[in-house]
Amino acid sequence: MSGAAAREVERDPGLQPERTRLAWRRTTLSSTVVTVLAGKAALAGGGSVAAGVAGAVCCACWVGILAVAHRRIRALAGGGVPDALVPPYAAAAVVCLVVTVVSGAVLVLLG
């Protein structure tokens, strides 16, 4: 069997790594929308220090989710059999979301 044919066989016909990679991409897009809305709330907060800090925390969490997604997307795009998602990555993404919500609650109460 030639090398090219061997790679064809290795490739999952269900495109599972690609679908998972795109699912991460969709998740980063969703978190971008949430961050834009949080930024609007922070700017509407009237320029108070607390609103600014809360907005900055939301942006930092967005960067955190992007970083997790970027590393996972790179692992999935590497070809071959990808490693399974490890719990700290999943937990990091969720922690970023929870911190966003906490600072978002501060923004809502300030507004």
Partner: peptide
């Protein structure tokens, strides 16, 4: 590994549901 990836996608779908709820909260406020 495909089962693990399917589980991961389900997790991400729930995470997006959570993000949509959070976005809805911000939208109601704004």
């Amino acid at each position: 590994y495909r089962f693990s990836l399917a589980n991961e996608r389900t997790f991400l779908a729930w995470l997006r549901t959570a993000l949509a709820l959070v976005g809805g909260g911000f939208a109601v406020d704004q």
